[in-house]
Write a protein that binds this DNA or RNA. Structure first.
Lengths: 133, 133, 133, 133
DNA sequence: GTGGTCTAGACCACT
DNA sequence: GTGGTCTAGACCACT
């Protein structure tokens, strides 16, 4: 899987890395049980600090998206993925809320906003590369 | 308008403040041309530092949501609000993308996700208090 | 003479007022010896504070662009205008310098910059309204 | 690069700092991709507060003259510099206009004014020290 | 070590 | 009284 980072972004690198892996899982490009590169090799591949990869992996493990085995290495969660806890629902709404509010201010009506969400949803699930649409 | 901040949150206070004001505008609770409290009085009201309010106001001004008149104070943008630039569209998509990806991982299908967006959209535009839903 | 102020600009109103009057003189729309409105009437006309007009007039007088007579009121300097002191030359260069530096950074070559200055010079001296070009 | 500030000037320190850096880029003394001192070290070097440097850097970043990498520090924009947007052209003209008007009032003809601009342009691009001319 | 955020407190320009 | 600027000092996230 190709990881694309923007080192100038003000989104922390470990967050970008987490997002890329989560999107990989969402799209099916990363299958349950599929091995991920080791902390060391991934850090070397994309030219970032070991600690940064480690932080991303640790958080992904905490949230249940991956498993880290001392010997076998890192794999995409082979069992049930996290699911829709109410904690998650609150966090999701808190993230969406300001985005939707800004969209309204900028003149998007509900149809337009739903269309954008639909497009992104389709785009992710149809397994295309990030830069495709 | 009631401002609700979570000082424990890892979202910076000035960002929360910006979001609250943007949502106020989106909901119609803040009308174009309506005066906002001065930097000092708002800071005193919500018990934070004047500079933090100033930063939020300055950024909102830069993005075109409010106007700052040197001595008259601050008002909600009375002229055209920012609008849908392509810069904005990219930023919006970049914000939505990881949220949607995580929703997919957690088993939300498209209908459920659109329903969540619909609810939040309606909720904001029907001018309810934040804690209502 | 029509005064155009931008109350939202971060240029102080008194400075804008000074600039408008200086440009009026430069263009010939304001002739030497020509009377200017009183502080009171100008403030009323353009809807700003007395003190603001007063400050602009006082500074213009200090710099020699106008005369203020207790009885006769305010007139455009009927005698020699300020002239090119070395103080002025330094101030002018200090003002131009950062503008030129930014123009260079943004890719303007010398011809383009000189053309812009030429256009503005012609524009002012041909006595057109501000929004003409 | 040597930074020269006038703490007595009524031009804010952060503006002077921005101007010096922009002129450094214009002159070629600061090359694309070249690192700039950290907020803290520059503040210490020139004896001003860290926040003042931070403000200058943040604004330069917003205008696209520099990049700020979270931990690696600050570099001169290695990619394309801002360029000539119409926003910029308007701002530039608005800055030049009162300067030109005053020059006219003080008796400069167009040749003289163009000569001054030419001299400053050459002076900046020939990479001389500020106090040279 | 780097920038980001926040506080507390001060003085100033503008109106 | 308003926002703008500056200082001093602190803690934090990130790498």
């Amino acid at each position: 899987m190709i990881i694309e980072l923007d080192l100038q972004s003000d989104t922390p690198i470990y967050t970008q890395l987490m997002n890329q892996i989560i999107e990989g899982i969402a799209s099916g490009r990363l299958q349950p049980g599929e091995p991920l590169p080791s902390v060391r090799s991934l850090a070397a591949d994309i030219g970032i600090n070991l600690h940064t990869v480690n932080k991303a992996y640790t958080l992904l493990k905490q949230e249940g998206f991956i498993q880290i085995h001392r010997q076998k290495g890192v794999v995409v969660q082979p069992d049930a993925l996290p699911g829709m806890t109410s904690d998650y629902a609150h966090r999701r709404d808190a993230q969406l809320r300001p985005i939707i509010a800004e969209a309204i201010c900028r003149g998007m009506n509900e149809q337009q906003l739903l269309a954008v969400v639909h497009d992104l949803y389709s785009h992710i699930t149809t397994n295309e590369r990030k830069d495709a649409p």
